[in-house]
Nucleic acid binder design. Structure first.
Lengths: 139, 139
DNA sequence: GTAATCCCGATTGATTTTGTCGGGTTTAGG
DNA sequence: CCTAAACCCGACAAAATCAATCGGGATTAC
């Protein structure tokens, strides 16, 4: 079980924007020169983050990206959802899943639901602020 | 973020073997006719489960697969580890990772460690017995 | 007007996933 | 001993996904 690089890169990007919060919009070029990741790829991720309402953009010259809300209001779960798509351990409980014919009797269904809920709760319990302050130990 | 079908199929298979515990070895053909998954593919997964010490096999005619230990002693984490490989949200903290040059200052490192530990704990907290008895609610 | 910058869809190469296949080995039962 | 049932295993292949790359369009500060 792995996370794709999207979630990982998006987290790096958001941490960087968090560090620069209040300093005005950060250009894509500036961001990627700092976090050392492919410019065009990060651009795509920033698009997802924008559409999810996590960053806002200023277009045109001197434009760039910045956090759309405070670091307390953004969670790891928000960032993963925006870039990796909703957590889905088993299709049978995904939002758009066709109902499985044996769903009522399936002995693993409860497990998927429980695991999905637990992991989502975990992801949503960590804010960008926690990361910036390196608060992981006490959570 | 998704689990591959390996972990999912392996869970189905193990639940089936748990239901048949005590009834002697179950043939691959019998297993897959019940859980309705591709025979040759499940065979591969059973190989991984065997090498991980979760199932044991009886070779030759009338042979088959059965749990190698009691359902209490097998966890979801064991099954996922055996079939999907160790949980790895970020390479930088994997066992075989080359140490990242900026590891000490990386603000996301703590997050990966915390998330990985939490999810592993979650996976290890659910036994095959819990699944068989549908005990998820109370965990 | 122009350069800086974001926006976005299409395409591509690499990798991983999800199987399939063929033959080898083991063993119960007659 | 023979045979059929069954596991074992490595190689192969199709499909899907990932990780970018690219080219051009739209917006705006100066």
């Amino acid at each position: 079980m792995k996370l794709s690089t999207k979630g990982k890169y998006a987290l790096y990007t958001m941490v960087y924007l968090g560090q620069k919060a209040g300093d005005g919009p950060q250009s894509l070029k500036g961001i990627t020169q700092n976090i050392l990741l492919p410019e065009n790829y990060i651009e795509q991720l920033l698009g997802s983050l924008r559409r999810a309402g996590l960053v806002k953009t200023v277009r045109g010259a001197q434009g760039g990206y910045e956090l759309a809300k405070s670091a307390e209001e953004i969670t790891v779960g928000d960032i993963f959802d925006a870039t990796e798509g909703k957590l889905s351990l088993s299709d049978c409980i995904a939002d758009d899943a066709v109902p499985c014919p044996k769903s009522s009797s399936c002995p693993t269904r409860g497990v998927w639901e429980y695991l999905t809920a637990s992991i989502n709760k975990l992801f949503n319990s960590i804010s960008l602020k926690d990361m910036l302050e390196n608060n992981m130990k006490e959570i």
